[in-house]
Write a protein that binds this DNA or RNA. Sequence first.
DNA 1: CCCAGACCGTAAGTATACTGTCAATTAACA
DNA 2: TGTTAATTGACAGTATACTTACGGTCTGGG
Lengths: 169, 169
Amino acid sequence: MPSKPLPPITMDAVYAAPGYLFRRMQQIAVSIFMEECKAFDLTPVQYAALTAIHTHPGIDATRLSAVIAFDRSTLGSVIERLEAKDFVERKPAPEDRRIKLLYLTKPGVAILREIIPAVERAQARMLEPLKPADRKALTALLSQLVDLNNEASRVPLRAEDALERLGKG
Amino acid sequence: MPSKPLPPITMDAVYAAPGYLFRRMQQIAVSIFMEECKAFDLTPVQYAALTAIHTHPGIDATRLSAVIAFDRSTLGSVIERLEAKDFVERKPAPEDRRIKLLYLTKPGVAILREIIPAVERAQARMLEPLKPADRKALTALLSQLVDLNNEASRVPLRAEDALERLGKG
DNA sequence: CCCAGACCGTAAGTATACTGTCAATTAACA
DNA sequence: TGTTAATTGACAGTATACTTACGGTCTGGG
């Protein structure tokens, strides 16, 4: 019996691999976001953090990381930068001295409102080369896949859990 | 006349945005890759670099960056790490003292052959939650989108250009 | 032949995105 | 109640992923 032939080592195999396509698309998405939003000097992650803090004022860093699926360690420096720009405030929680509660400042709320059109332009541009029907199909498939693969990520999205506790506390 | 209403600021809008989905899927893809390949201690980018050097022995760092769509600066440290692990060799080009030519070592070729099954398992796992037809559809759409958005990236894929010059030189 | 410009690798700086670990603090339970 | 367990933010370490800039090198037009 012949042994299974070794697959050829080619760049075409790399270019067709989902992992490569995801990395590449992420590069492109960040690039487009930064271009559209350069007047605001906010990164995609900083924008997501501002939105989450706006939606859940007084959230703490650990719960914020669960809401935006972002590593707890990295989030520290993200918040530091937002604090340095005076978009976010950290206040110690009275009932738990380990926790620091996060709030948007007035400039933070203002920039969040102002940046929205640029963010929407960026999101539209990412999919623009596709036909409208294909845009919907891609978004739906991606959305499904991210949801079904949630547990495979080291930092799964846990918005419900996080907010449930927030409500209880 | 009423002014256009402001869009509501919600996390659901963030979760449905293509940019968020691409970032999330990239996180998941890297996590799956690292899990499947942890016995080899190679990152996705290091794997792509090894494959490209194997396919084009004697390529230089700038052309390599064009072939794998990876920033020239970052690539320096990636190659350094591959050199430290003794998977890659850098040799000065005799006809151009600016250039260092890249070659795989024997261990480099060996690990590339050995890691392939793990890489294929990782690629399959990324799409596994979808139905087979949907896997194909997603890959096709992504492939199209990456190709059509190539110029939007700061580091566009320029494999043909790079290899053309490589052949001429 | 010369020199302006292009090109090569490299370095410093910023920002994700992880891995650990740690001390302080709070919660849970025997 | 008292001791262990879990949680929180912080820190150090590694690896992308980009920016600008700089010295060394080559190349083309005058």
